[in-house]
Design a protein around this nucleic acid. Structure first.
Lengths: 102, 102
DNA sequence: TATCTATATGATCATATGTTCATATAGATA
DNA sequence: TATCTATATGAACATATGATCATATAGATA
């Protein structure tokens, strides 16, 4: 039971890290975030590009909004979404880059 | 439907990224990987440090082994585990560092 | 050799999560 | 104002996942 020079993680840190990775663990959210990292998009546009149901996209956007990873602005009947957490985007991009360069 | 200068992700890339993030999404695996990133550990040691059942730890190690994120060596009755995917460790460390510096 | 220790693993069960379906709503338009 | 369009959301359902329990196994030791 000798405690060495470890950096122990607090439960809070672990939970927060888990939360971050959980968001990125879903293929649909990966696609949405990657798309939004390149341009602001309306829900309809996301739906068309990803070839998904409007409902599924909206639900995922709600999740992402709840975690403050995306933000939206209204223009008439359209809502335009964009990324609002550069760190998460960086993490996503790094992993994708690493995968693609193999 | 105008396709702009997007980097589109292949399904394979998305799936692979998802797989990576899924592993890191579980608190138990975060703790195990972080511990192993600091020192090689026996299953018993992990079990004690993380205060978890031997079975739960073994199951997670099996998962991690299957994804080649950890490797093990035998010494008599003990199995010593260590990390074998530095990129995943880097990703984990970066996210944790970002969380802790806030 | 009988037993103990360290580890692995299959089955089961509860929980979490993502999609679909149906429906609600606000702004635009006829 | 009636209707259409874009988006949001609750309910229901199927699937995935992690922990536990019971048990198996190989090496160490009495």
């Amino acid at each position: 039971m000798d405690k060495k020079n470890h950096q122990f993680l607090s439960d809070k840190t672990v939970e927060e890290a888990s939360r971050t990775f959980k968001v990125l663990a879903d293929p649909t959210r990966i696609k949405i975030l990657y798309l939004l990292s390149q341009e602001e998009c309306s829900v309809t546009h996301i739906t068309e590009v990803l070839n998904m149901s409007q409902s599924a996209v909206s639900h995922q956007l709600r999740t992402l909004r709840g975690l403050r990873l995306v933000k939206s602005r209204r223009d008439g009947n359209h809502f335009y979404y964009s990324c609002s957490d550069q760190h998460v985007i960086n993490t996503l991009t790094q992993v994708i880059t690493h995968i693609d360069c193999e």
